[in-house]
Design a protein around this nucleic acid. Structure first.
Lengths: 160, 160
DNA sequence: GCAAATTAGTTTGTATGCTAACAGTTTATG
DNA sequence: CATAAACTGTTAGCATACAAACTAATTTGC
C-alpha cells in the first residue's frame, strides 16, 4: 500500500487548518503552500485507488474509461481527452494492449493515426471496476460532509 | 512548459461545475471523479511551478525547504517530513547533493543514519526562490476569491 | 547477553509525466 | 502545385513515486 501516507497523517492529524491558512502571505511555511497539500491529497487518493482497484492504475483506468465511453479514439486524441501528453499515453496504451484490454489499427484515411478500441475483455473489466471507482471517490471524500463535498468539487473544478 | 494542460483547459473552460458535481453517484462519468480532477489541478500547479521556478522541481524544493527550516535531518526523516518514501528521497537527495545544495555525513552515534544539511549555496538558493514559491501558490489559486481560497484550503487540509 | 524485531539506507523493477528531437503524413498557403 | 506549417506517433532522457527485496546497524524482549 502506501507507507508514507500513513506515517504522515498520523503525525499531522491535529493541525489547525484555519490558523495555517491564515498566514499564507506572511512567513514561508511549506505546509501552507497549496501545491504541497495538493500533492499529499493526491497521494492519499492514489493509495485508496490502488487498494480498491489493484488491477489498473488510475491513468490506465482513465484511458480505458474514455475508450469505453467513446467507443474509439486515436492515440493522441485519447491523450488529450484525459490530459496525458503524447509520450506518456504511448506507454499507457502499450501496456493496455499487452494485456489485451484494447486493440489498435491504423486509420486508412490518415496513415498517421492509430485507432484504439476497447476489446470485449476491456469492456468487461471496465464494467467490473466502475462500481469500485465510485467507491474510490466516496472514500477519498469521506472526511467531508455532503455540503462540503459539493463545495470542494465546485472549487476544485475552478482550479483545473 | 505543459502542452497538455493548455489543450485541455481551452476545451473545457465552459463546463458547468455545479451540474457536474450533482450527479456523482448516478451514472459514471470520468470527469465527475475527484481523483481525475485532482490530477488535473495538480498538473496545472506543476506547470505553474516549473514556469516560475525552473531551477528546482517541487519535490526538490520541498526537501531543500525542510532542511533550511530545520537545519538538518536524516535522509529517511526528511522523506517522512515531506511525505516521500525512502526509495524516492534517495534520488532527490542525490541530485541536490550533486548540485552542491545540500551536504551529507554519517552520524557517529548511529552509523545507519545520513545527516543532511543545506550548504551555504543551498540556503542562498532557497532565499532567492521562496518569494517565487509564494507567487506559485498565488497563481495556482488565482481562479478563486479570497473567501474561496480559505475555504478550499480548509477542505483540502481535511483530505490530506 | 542474545535472538528477534525494527530501523536506515540501497537497489531493482514498474509506471507516470514531462521536454526535446525526430520521421512520416496531411493540411494550409502563397 | 510546391513548400511551409501542423499534426501523429516514436524515441531518448530525466525526475518523481511506489513496491519488494536486501544489507547493515540498532533496539527490544526474554
Amino acid at each position: 500500500m502506501n507507507k508514507v501516507f500513513h506515517a504522515i497523517t498520523e503525525k499531522q492529524q491535529d493541525a489547525d487548518a484555519t490558523t495555517m491558512a491564515a498566514d499564507i502571505t506572511s512567513d514561508y511555511q511549506l505546509e501552507d503552500q497549496v501545491g504541497f497539500i495538493l500533492r499529499c491529497v493526491n497521494q492519499r487518493h492514489l493509495s485508496i485507488f490502488s487498494r480498491l482497484i489493484p488491477d489498473l492504475t488510475p491513468t490506465q483506468f482513465s484511458a480505458l474509461t474514455k475508450l469505453c465511453e467513446n467507443g474509439q479514439a486515436s492515440q493522441n486524441e485519447l491523450g488529450r481527452m484525459i490530459a496525458i501528453d503524447a509520450a506518456t499515453i504511448k506507454g499507457v496504451v502499450d501496456r493496455l494492449k499487452l494485456r489485451g484490454l484494447i486493440s489498435s489499427e491504423s486509420q486508412p484515411s490518415d496513415l498517421r493515426r492509430l485507432i484504439l478500441k476497447p476489446t470485449a475483455k476491456g469492456r468487461q473489466l471496465f464494467d467490473q471496476i466502475r462500481v469500485a471507482a465510485l467507491a474510490v471517490s466516496e472514500e477519498t471524500l469521506k472526511p467531508l460532509s455532503d455540503k462540503e463535498r459539493h463545495l470542494f468539487f465546485r472549487l476544485l473544478m475552478k482550479l483545473r
